[in-house]
């Protein structure tokens, strides 16, 4: 792409660069990057095939565009790169070769980007419309733009993924919370039931104690009175009138004690 007027040349280049940059920025997904490249790159440099590889660790995002407007995006492993790109990646030295059979030349570069990410860029051009080495600064800028945008999109992708994970974790957490709540409710109702049973049994026990104490006290008070009245009576009168009553009351007391024991045994059985 040669323009005779240098000013006009720069203007065209500037506008093409702006469009390329705007297009790349518009891409919302990695898949859309190739399309944007195919729309705008042809105004910046001559090429038949354009390859761009964004390398993060062992993972490679591959973008391909040809001059006919065909595009492709896929990911692969670092080992799956073709020989020329692998060679450039390993040596770091730009590569150039010419194929006489197809009359095409291939240029390939490796770039070291921010955050330990690499990229490879290659251009295959036909002898009729060759890649101009003057375009190398443009290649650098193109790499800069692409790598920045790709990294940006990958970050968004990662955040999106983490959000999804977080959401699914939240769902799990919510369901766990519901389970815990249900368990708590269950526990609470068990406690209430047990407390009620305990209160009920306490009430019964209290009733039993009151009943028992009355049962015992009644004959006991008779015995006390029957002993106390001795002071006020003649011995003969006491023996004839009171002693039989005393004996009867003592027997009543004994019976009452036996009954109390029986009742407490019955209460024990009922509680079990």
């Amino acid at each position: 792409m040669e323009v005779s007027n240098p000013y006009l040349g720069y203007k065209i280049l500037f506008e093409a660069m702006v469009k390329f940059s705007a297009g790349i920025s518009m891409a919302k997904k990695l898949e859309e990057i190739s399309l944007e490249v195919s729309l705008h790159l042809k105004y910046l440099l001559n090429f038949q095939d354009f390859n761009y590889f964004f390398i993060a660790g062992q993972e490679v995002d591959c973008f391909w565009v040809n001059q006919m407007g065909k595009t492709r995006y896929h990911t692969c492993h670092l080992d799956q790169l073709d020989p020329i790109h692998k060679q450039v990646f390993e040596s770091g030295i730009p590569e150039y070769n010419y194929c006489e059979k197809s009359n095409t030349s291939t240029h390939a570069w490796k770039f070291f980007n921010e955050n330990n990410h690499f990229s490879l860029l290659s251009i295959r051009s036909h002898i009729d419309n060759p890649f101009n080495e003057k375009s190398i600064p443009i290649i650098k800028v193109v790499n800069k733009m692409l790598s920045a945008r790709i990294e940006n999109l990958k970050m968004i992708q990662l955040i999106h993924l983490q959000n999804q994970e977080l959401e699914s974790l939240t769902t799990v957490l919510q369901s766990k919370n519901t389970e815990i709540q249900a368990l708590n409710n269950q526990q609470e109702s068990i406690i209430i039931e047990k407390t009620t049973r305990l209160k009920d049994s306490n009430k019964k026990l209290r009733g039993l104690i009151q009943f028992n104490s009355h049962q015992l006290r009644e004959p006991l008070t008779r015995v006390i009175s029957l002993v106390a009245i001795k002071e006020d009576l003649l011995v003969e009168e006491y023996i004839s009138d009171i002693l039989p009553l005393l004996s009867e009351s003592v027997m009543d007391l004994d019976r009452a004690i036996i009954e109390v024991i029986e009742r407490s045994e019955f209460f024990d059985k009922e509680e079990k």
Binding site: R222, I229, D232, D241
Partner: peptide
């Protein structure tokens, strides 16, 4: 309801 108590109380009161 206890006869013996009544007998006792009667004795005391009449004393």
């Amino acid at each position: 309801d206890q006869k013996i108590t009544n007998v006792l109380n009667r004795k005391y009161l009449s004393m």
